[in-house]
Design a protein around this nucleic acid. Structure first.
Lengths: 190, 190
DNA sequence: TTATCTTTTTAACAAATTTCGATAATTATA
DNA sequence: TATAATTATCGAAATTTGTTAAAAAGATAA
């Protein structure tokens, strides 16, 4: 509970009453690597805080090599099939752990209670939504504006640990190219 | 003022006190077509509701043909260099009207007052941020997942009026291809 | 350690996209 | 209306990227 409390305190002040209401709704879960957290077609019922681990968002194709990695999420971030969570429509993508991962999750209906019954709920909800917006916005911009080479280079500088921990084929599909193509890019850079 | 009131009422109930506080902060501006609303490098100071018109988000390059169209926004939507607005860092892109456009705008500091002094502020702020997230999220997904042809076809079905009103070259850069390439796609479809 | 499986790299070819040049069509303007 | 300016289309060459297949390198488990 420590990390999420820290995270929220870094966003805004929160009184003890609100905090205990919110934190009483959180439940902790641990997943081994390669576990599925949310399936395609399922309506997302949780938003979760990553205490430890890495989660991948993906859309599977016929072959594993054709999968599209929509995004990664790391320690101290909120993760969800968020579009599905917000609209309560079936999710278009899947959430899968890349390494052993532990999450603190709150259900949709419990979160609505937090929004309704705490002073701070909507403020935190707004700030979290705003942060998630910025992430997706930058991603869309990069997909339009940057070359695959640039995108790889940016990952390299922004998240040097990602390159080490995550198999190349997932990074390739995140960047939007085939593993072969990323292999060429790598060769070119070094 | 009518359209924005309707829009907000479609999101949530709002009492008269909150509404008059909020609406007193709005100022109306009209722009001829091809006007710049927000420049690159500028810190975005407004979020605006489009009463009428179309706004294009873009990143200019050396040649006009190389410009990248990051997005379009239409009547009854909120528009802003939102990442810049949220972070109060210089904007990476530019806002420009495509046709004659009228906006209802609120400044950053006035919006913070609304968040602070009204009951409903953070709720509306959250819901707007969530909606904008869904838009950007779908966009990133489409850029990774769909072919240029598919993206054009989706635009065609989702926003048939867009195809008519907006020059092909802007649509091409929105889709992520050259005008020539889009011209070929068009030919193929019809 | 060997044997097996997965991941990454490399190569040759095919397909898709961009670039460039030119022209046609449309729109704006004197 | 005539002229200029912008926008859209087309073909061919050049480039990039995907595809397929196979080899090399790394990881895992018996």
């Amino acid at each position: 509970m420590d990390k999420i409390r820290k995270y929220i305190k870094s966003i805004t002040e929160i009184n003890d009453e609100d905090w205990s209401f919110f934190s009483s709704k959180l439940h902790k879960n641990s997943y081994p690597k390669k576990s599925i957290i949310t399936e395609i077609g399922e309506v997302e019922n949780h938003i979760s805080f990553i205490e430890k681990g890495i989660v991948r968002l993906l859309i599977p194709k016929k072959e594993e090599a054709d999968e599209i990695t929509y995004g990664f999420s790391f320690e101290n971030e909120f993760i969800s099939a968020y579009s599905s969570f917000l609209t309560q429509a079936p999710s278009l993508y899947k959430l899968e752990t890349l390494v052993e991962t532990s999450l603190l999750s709150i259900t949709y209906s419990d979160l609505q209670k937090v929004y309704k019954h705490t002073k701070i709920g909507n403020l935190i909800g707004r700030l979290v939504a705003e942060r998630l917006f910025i992430i997706k916005s930058n991603r869309a911009l990069s997909l339009l504006n940057d070359s695959a080479e640039k995108r790889y280079f940016n990952l390299f500088t922004e998240r040097p640990n990602l390159i080490k921990e995550i198999p190349l084929k997932y990074i390739a599909s995140y960047i939007g190219v085939t593993p072969q193509s990323l292999s060429r890019i790598r060769k070119k850079i070094t």
